[in-house]
């Protein structure tokens, strides 16, 4: 078993899953930012569990004696960015009630904007704080110029012709794209594929999230 999580940075970013974490760490690496710790909080659909886990993560012991200066929550928009933002804010309100020592923050009012409270807080909604979708949407948008992208589109479109209620379309597209691009057809997760630069990290679709990460690193 890997070492238990301890807090080792004064800026924290909470994401929904291991793929999100891998993608963010790759983006941070490309930006030469190393002062942000990215932590997975599973299960946003179980509100109570999500808050308990988030709270437990924030209470983790720190490697040295410092205080958390800023933290952000990054959630998928899924069907609507605004409702996901409100969901994240209501989670933060619950977290406020738990009165975690040395974590004194206000509730963000706008997407991707840090509060001015002692501990800065912000919410970023994937893919771009506007459209519906998720991490996968952002990654797929970065490779729309890739010839294989059209293959994937046709493939999924054909599949929908056979099963018109095909769900998790974006995730299926991502896995299909990875299957085509990965060396020797190796099975890879989105996080692993992103680390291997199967997606286009330099695409301007990542500009907003990169700006947000830079902002967090300066808090």
């Amino acid at each position: 078993m890997s070492d238990s999580l301890r807090i080792n940075k004064d800026k924290l970013l909470f994401v929904e899953g291991v793929d999100d974490r891998a993608v963010i760490y790759r983006l941070l690496k490309s930006l030469n930012i190393d002062n942000i710790q990215v932590i997975c909080i599973d299960g946003k659909d179980n509100r109570k569990k999500f808050i308990d886990t988030l709270s437990a993560a924030l209470k983790s012991p720190k490697e040295t004696d410092f205080q958390i200066n800023a933290f952000a929550i990054m959630l998928d928009a899924d069907n609507e960015a605004k409702s996901s933002f409100q969901k994240a804010c209501s989670i933060l309100k619950e977290l406020q009630k738990r009165k975690i020592k040395n974590l004194d923050f206000d509730i963000p009012k706008k997407f991707a904007e840090f509060t001015n409270s002692k501990t800065k807080a912000a919410v970023f909604i994937m893919p771009d704080c506007k459209c519906c979708g998720m991490l996968e949407t952002l990654c797929l948008n970065s490779v729309k110029d890739d010839p294989f992208y059209n293959c994937v589109e046709s493939f999924i479109s054909n599949a929908k012709g056979i099963k018109n209620d095909l769900d998790y379309i974006e995730k299926r597209k991502v896995l299909s794209f990875i299957a085509l691009k990965a060396k020797k057809g190796h099975k890879k997760s989105l996080g692993e594929a992103f680390e291997d630069d199967i997606f286009n990290i330099n695409s301007d679709v990542f500009d907003l999230i990169k700006k947000f990460l830079k902002d967090l690193s300066l808090r």
């Binding site: 569990k49 308990d52 886990t53």
Partner: peptide
């Protein structure tokens, strides 16, 4: 519940 979730997620406690 926080303790339970910390252990499930391998957070140091």
């Amino acid at each position: 519940d926080e303790l339970k979730n910390a252990l499930q997620n391998n957070f140091e406690i």
